[in-house]
């Protein structure tokens, strides 16, 4: 665990410095957590709600954190679980075909209500949205966040080999989809 995180943890365990430690933690990780979630849910309001929920959980459970993994890994694990649970819940709410949730997110990117990137970025995001959720998460973590497979393995509780294979498939699918998009 990084020295800075260890210090945050120590301060969090003392009643006098608990608030200060939590402020430090929020400032250090809020952007990374938000962007991880935002890339998964696309909508800002949903990302905001989920990010807040992640830090509320951190506040309530940080004292029980044993420090077996890095603090960042632990927070990311909470964030990914919240994200997956949210998407699953959203799919259940739609009742109709499963693709509707992805369809809704794609529409937000196409119309530009939640996305202002250029054409190639838009095409890439649309291709990513066609991936299954877990593959999308792996791709986002590896491609945008540049998280190592070892760290990812701790966060997602999957083997490094499976993550490599998942990323490999994701890249191939994205390439194929981009080619299709370019042709059309």
């Amino acid at each position: 665990m990084k020295e800075e995180d260890r210090e945050i943890l120590e301060k969090f365990r003392s009643e006098e410095t608990k608030q200060m430690a939590f402020n430090l933690l929020i400032r250090k990780y809020q952007k990374r957590v938000y962007w991880l979630i935002r890339k998964m849910v696309i909508d800002h309001d949903d990302a905001n709600d989920l990010s807040q929920e992640v830090f509320v959980k951190v506040w309530f459970y940080l004292e029980d954190f044993r420090g077996e993994s890095g603090l960042f890994t632990w927070i990311y694990r909470i964030a990914t679980r919240e994200c997956m649970a949210f998407l699953r819940k959203k799919k259940r709410r739609f009742f109709l075909p499963i693709g509707d949730v992805e369809g809704e997110m794609s529409k937000k990117i196409e119309t530009g209500s939640d996305f202002s990137g250029d054409e190639i970025q838009k095409k890439l995001q649309l291709a990513i949205l066609k991936l299954p959720e877990k593959q999308r998460l792996v791709f986002n973590m590896k491609y945008f966040e540049e998280i190592t497979y070892e760290e990812m393995s701790e966060i997602l509780g999957t083997s490094v080999g499976a993550l490599k294979a998942s990323y490999h498939h994701a890249v191939q699918k994205i390439q194929a989809d981009l080619e299709k998009q370019m042709k059309s």
């Binding site: 962007w35 800002h44 905001n48 506040w59 939640d114 990137g117 970025q121 995001q125």
Partner: peptide, 19 residues
């Protein structure tokens, strides 16, 4: 990609407040 997703101004402070 972050720059392609619009975020309201002063959002990070409001996120802290919300938490």
């Amino acid at each position: 990609i972050e720059s392609s997703f619009p975020v309201p101004e002063g959002y990070w402070l409001s996120l802290e407040q919300g938490i």
